[in-house]
Structures are given as C-alpha cells and as structure tokens.
Design a protein around this nucleic acid. Structure first.
Lengths: 199, 199
DNA sequence: TGATGGGTTGATCGATCAATCAAGTCGTGC
DNA sequence: GCACGACTTGATTGATCGATCAACCCATCA
C-alpha cells in the first residue's frame, strides 16, 4: 500500500495537471487520495510544499518516466527528438487535447511564484533542454559546425509548448501537428549536406 | 470621465494579465477601478462576464492596438512579422520578463473553460494567425509555391508563445531572443531563391 | 507493562471568495 | 413638481478556502 504522502503526490500530479494548481482545493487532494487533512499537513507544511514536491518529482522523472519510454526502440538522435514530441502528441490525443505539458501550464498559471517554485519550473525546462541538446550533439556531424545546439534545443521546447497551447485551446491536434511538421522541415534543411550553415 | 464599466474593463485587462484570472479577486477589481460591487454586478452578471468582455476587447484590438503600433514605419511583410515579435519582446523587457501574452497565459490557466471562453481564446489566436498569414501571402513570391502560409503562421504564433513562456519562467529575455533568432534563420532559408520548397 | 513517538482522525477555525440587495442618488421627460 | 429608470452605495450573505489542533491509534522497544 502506498503511504499517505505517496498517495497525495500521485493525486496532486494528476489534479494539478488536469485542473491547475489554484483550481485544485486541498479538499480535492484529500478526497481523491483518501487522506485526512491532518495527515496531509503532517507530510507537507503547506499546499505550496505539495507543489514543490510535485515539481521535484517531474524534474527527477524526466529521464526515467518521460524519455526512456518515448525512446524505447528509437536510436537515431534526431528521431528521438521527434519521438519525444510524439509522446506529447499521444498525451494530447488520449485526453481529447485537454492535457498538455504540466510544467508549461503551471509556468503560465503562476504569475508571481515564490523563488523556489520558479527555480523548479526553470529546472524542469533546463533538464528537458539538456537532454534534447545531447541528442543534437550526438547528431552534430550532420549539422553545420556553427549550429548552436543549446539554442536549437530551446527552440524545440518552444515549439512543443506553443503547439500544446494551441492544440489545447482549439481542442484539436492539428495545430500541434502543423508545428511539428514545420519543425521537421527546418531540421531537414539544417541537416542537408553542404548547406548546413548559413549564420 | 470613463464610465464604471470602462474602468472595470481597463483594470481587468491589466490585472488578469499581471496576476491571472483566478488570482484576481473581484475585490481587487473594485478597489483598483474605484467602483463598488453593486456597480460591477450592474454592468456584468458575473466575474466570468468580465473575462468575456476582456477577451472580446483583445480580439477586436488586435489590429488597432497591437499591429498598427508595431507596424508603424515597417512595410516589408516579413519584417512586419518580426516587428510584431519585437513588440512582445519590448513588453517582456519593460516588465522584467513577468508580462507576456495575456491570451496565452489565460489559455493555459483556464483548464476547463466554458465554451464561450474557449471560443474567444481560439478567436484571438485565429485573428493573430490570420494577420501573420496575410503578411506571408504578401511575400508569397519569395517563398516556394508549396509553402503553407497558414501552417507557417501557426508555427510563428507557437514560437512567440513558447518563447514568452520560457522568458517568463527564467525571468530572462534570452530564451525569447534565441527562439526568434532561430525563426529568422528558418525564414531566411525558406526565402532563398531557387531552394524555397522541399516538402 | 508501560512509555515513546510517528502517523491518523475529523471537527473546527478565521479569512477570503463571488455574489446579493435594499436603500439611495441623479438626470430626464412629462 | 413628480414619476421613472439608470446607476451607485456598501453592508451582508453563504460557500469555500487553506490551515490548525486536541485526541487518538498502534508498532516498537525497554
């Protein structure tokens, strides 16, 4: 049996992603994880500390929970990037385009977050970008030498988050697919031999 | 003197952008617009109707309030796109990277919005995309004929929103600049004569 | 047997929320 | 002068919020 703390965290990850942080009442967490308020406040000083624990779990779960399943059977570093985008696509489709990237949602929902919250949001983005940049570095020989892999990885995160935002707003997958298609076109132009660099 | 309804709307546009919808209490709107609760509920049936009015104002203000100032003195259609992105950049810099695109923030903050809200969010995105697509159409002769201008405009909105998200999260403008730089590179590759199309 | 302490129970708290409403003000038409 | 509707005033409501706390349970070990 999971401990009360674990049940709270699992419920919080789901509800914060489904409804957002502010729209999730502590009473919702208690009901859906079958925990009483005293137990929650025994495990976490405040509701915000639940959020901190959730963001730490996402940060520590990028590789084992997100990348490894998405990259199973995919070995080409460029295709791994698109497999990662495909994982977000599957999430969107499975939820009727209501569920996107929980980090992005929280990043825009919390306008003036306390420093530890903002630092954890940034750490999640940084971790994601680092792994994508590693893929790009592994494919470095296919790019021009002056391609800035960190900048390009930042761009890829932007395309994912912006695509998720539009898909969620329209409740249609097409905007996300359009963005990934355009990104594919750009990457293919970057990797065409002999014209790889231009700036 | 502005009417109570106008003052509420001006305050709501500012506070919803600064703090978000849910974090803005009706009492905040009342205090900062010097209006009493009875007057607000005389002008608007509910708080949500204030949001609807705000989203309608943004939708109707895209051309006169956003594009026309950004495009003053800029006539090249491609440069107009980057001038538009420059307007968001200025907003970010002026607010220490705390204020981004209010539509994007609301789109991710409101996870399960009522249909009229979601429709207005989508209408705002659609209006923005339509204007960018018009720019691309005006520059059509510079692209390959098989470039999908609507798809590319969707991509440009994604780059803006994703760039704003990362800049706000890091409280630094660099991620936004990085994304715009990469977009510039892509557009320049699309418009190089004789190799304009590849898919 | 009894003491200790991590963990649980669930009623309860004050604060804050969106929303209400009776009473009042004021300009306009008759 | 008076009736009317549009709008304002501001106290008040019930609901919901995050958080608290005394009492209790029970495994462990002396």
């Amino acid at each position: 049996m999971h401990s009360a703390k674990q049940r709270i965290m699992m419920t919080a990850m789901r509800l914060f992603a489904e409804r957002g942080y502010q729209s999730t009442a502590v009473a919702d967490l208690l009901r859906e994880s079958s925990v009483h308020s005293g137990s929650l406040y025994h495990a976490f000083p405040t509701k915000q500390d639940v959020l901190i624990a959730v963001l730490e779990a996402y940060r520590d779960g990028i590789a084992p929970m997100l990348l490894e399943p998405a990259w199973k059977g995919v070995h080409d570093p460029i295709e791994r990037i698109f497999a990662l985008l495909g994982a977000y696509r599957r999430l969107l489709v499975e939820t009727g385009c209501t569920y996107g990237c929980p980090i992005g949602s929280l990043a825009l929902e919390l306008h003036e977050p306390d420093p530890p919250i903002r630092a954890l949001l940034a750490a999640n983005f940084d971790g994601w970008i680092d792994h994508v940049r590693d893929c790009l570095e592994q494919a470095r020989h296919r790019f021009g030498e002056d391609v800035d892999t960190h900048r390009l990885a930042t761009f890829i995160l932007t395309v994912m988050e912006g695509g998720v935002m539009q898909a969620r707003t329209h409740r249609r997958i097409e905007p996300f697919d359009d963005c990934v298609e355009v990104l594919r076109d750009y990457v293919s132009r970057l990797t065409v031999k002999g014209e790889g660099n231009r700036r």
